[in-house]
């Protein structure tokens, strides 16, 4: 079977957090970009976990080729990381994600998947940690006419090999569903920590060049790529804290806190 994993390069969200907390997250002159060059770029965490899900399917005995694709200006680092982890193919679809919306992103991914003669399973992250939108997998599913199963913590191939069994993390607890292939499945952090590449494979992957497939080679025109939503401004919301610090020894501070909460009617 052929598994496609869609991965996006994002700014390290922990670093973005740290800059924000320190009050040093600033928006560039264009009014919409984060310009902190010190923030590293890496593979979206959920996408790394989607790749992990693919690798686990293979570990479990599925005869699968794994193709990892990314739309970006230069995602070669994250694609090499994917190769080091065990991806058979790495594919770069050149476009600037900041000028695309979910529809255009899904259009490119769908056209590329079709051009390769389809996929049995498309794995995505549940959402990208930069825009937090979580719409591309559903839009991709609609474009390809495939069912979409979201927020997986486990993905297993059915014995017959023509369906997957997915454990979903819902607010009401785990739900187990089955869906016939081909299908789109999104993966959540509950799947667990992704593996690390071995030093040898990392070295090997360093020499690998992603296959570059330009959007015009996919027969996509301006209309397919024109976004329906356009980022026009980004701002850093101000936090106005007014925290009352309760001091003293633990017993004293604890007592004051309980009194305050009782006075406020919070307990």
């Amino acid at each position: 079977m052929r598994i496609v994993v869609c991965v996006k390069e994002v700014l390290d969200p922990d670093a973005v957090n740290s800059f924000a907390v320190a009050g040093r997250l600033v928006i560039g002159d264009d009014g919409k970009s984060l310009t902190q060059t010190a923030i590293p770029r890496l593979m979206n965490g959920f996408d790394e976990q989607a790749l992990e899900a693919a690798l686990r399917l293979r570990d479990a005995g599925a005869k699968a080729t794994i193709a990892v694709a990314s739309i970006g200006t230069d995602p070669s680092n994250i694609l090499r990381h994917a190769a080091a982890l065990g991806a058979d193919e790495i594919v770069h679809l050149p476009a600037d994600p900041s000028t695309l919306d979910g529809h255009a992103t899904a259009a490119i991914l769908a056209a590329w998947i079709r051009s390769t003669g389809a996929a049995d399973l498309v794995l995505c992250g549940r959402q990208a940690s930069d825009d937090d939108q979580g719409v591309v997998p559903a839009l991709l599913g609609e474009r390809l006419g495939l069912p979409v199963v979201t927020v997986a913590r486990a993905v297993a191939l059915s014995p017959s090999g023509d369906a997957v069994r997915v454990t979903r993390v819902t607010p009401d607890g785990d739900e187990v569903v089955e869906v016939s292939l081909p299908a789109v499945v999104t993966v959540s952090s509950e799947i667990g920590t992704p593996r690390y590449p071995t030093a040898a494979r990392k070295l090997q992957a360093r020499r690998m060049k992603p296959l570059v497939v330009p959007t015009d080679a996919l027969g996509l025109g301006m209309a397919d790529l024109a976004p329906k939503t356009r980022l026009v401004r980004q701002l850093v919301p101000a936090l106005h804290g007014h925290c009352e610090l309760l001091t003293g020894a633990p017993a004293e501070a604890a007592k004051t806190l309980v009194e305050r909460l009782a006075q406020d009617g919070a307990i």
């Binding site: 997250l25 930069d130 825009d131 937090d132 329906k228 356009r230 980022l231 401004r233 980004q234 701002l235």
Partner: peptide, 22 residues
């Protein structure tokens, strides 16, 4: 139509201009 959405978990707010199709 301009819609503000939270991004980066809320570290930033993104303002999107929304096209009129559909």
């Amino acid at each position: 139509l301009r819609v503000t959405a939270s991004a980066y978990g809320g570290d930033t707010h993104a303002v999107y201009e929304v096209a009129k199709e559909g």
